[in-house]
Amino acid sequence: MAHNYEIYGVVLASEFELKAPLVTDKSPDIHIKLANVESAPPSHLESVSAFASISNTQFWLDVPNIARFFVADLDTINVQPYPMADMDSVELYLLGAVLGPLMNMRKYLVMHGNVVHLEIHGQIHRLLLCGHSAVGKSSFSAYLINQCNARLVADDLAVFNSQGVVCSGSPRLKIWQDVSQALQLDEAELTPVRPSVNKFDWHIGERFISEQASVDLVVLLTGDNENTVEIEEIQGIKKLSPLQNQIFRKEFAKTAGLEKIHFILIGKSFGHTPVIKLGRPRSSKILENFEKMGKALFTYLTNELLGATRDKS
């Protein structure tokens, strides 16, 4: 019997149980099947790495010791777990490394980042937090949720539909152990992401918000400022390249013929959205760093965005 789940604006029907996404009774868009996947990619696909090959409708991925995946016709994902694989790891790759490129192929724009929903003085702001791997997207999201009453819309993949609005992910946030300790999170809400990795799924429950809405601000997190926090606003055509760099697996886009649709969707999703760079301090004091970043961000939001709203009215 298939289990149906809603994530990123689509419904998955899976032959095996998934832990992260919300259960739904809506009819499925994508079918996940336990089936044989060839050990080599079909010859008509173009290789994008030693373990991945793609066309505009198909995608083959081999994750050694975890599973082989094959996306066929944009609506089916065949999964063949390796004999000793744990299903938490299979789900992790399925919902990220496989579903991300598939959503791109389905003409969504998938950004590598987090979206949080933040209320300041009664006004809702939705922030897309981007930046290179390990810059602290999920960690800073966890701080905003834990300390500033923000709510999570999406973690790791931020999926924008053809209208340029973000579609929520699942009520979990992946964080490193040191961050969970710094934020003093309740251990009962944490489970290991996968065996032998020092990273946890934070089950955030009611602090997740299922919604489809526009993003008000893009925050490009940059690493290693000295001990200061700086905000720099990027405007006009200069926004394009930094935003393109945040597309999930953007190296696949050219092979799959997606560059034009991504360009259009970046315009729809972020054309009129302010984009700022927010430098993360180099200090090893995690909480202190986040407090400085949070303060700078709140000051910006209060001064710039509320100011802009006043200008319009």
């Binding site: 405007q235 006009g236 055509i237 926004k239 034009k260 360009f263 259009i264 729809k268 054309g271």
Partner: peptide
């Protein structure tokens, strides 16, 4: 031609999809 609005600027994608031109 494919183009997008980036604030007040119009950004156009070249035919070969490798270059972008901004008009302000």
């Amino acid at each position: 031609l494919v183009f997008a609005l980036m604030g007040e600027e119009v950004v156009m994608m070249s035919e070969d999809q490798d270059n972008y031109l901004g008009l302000n």
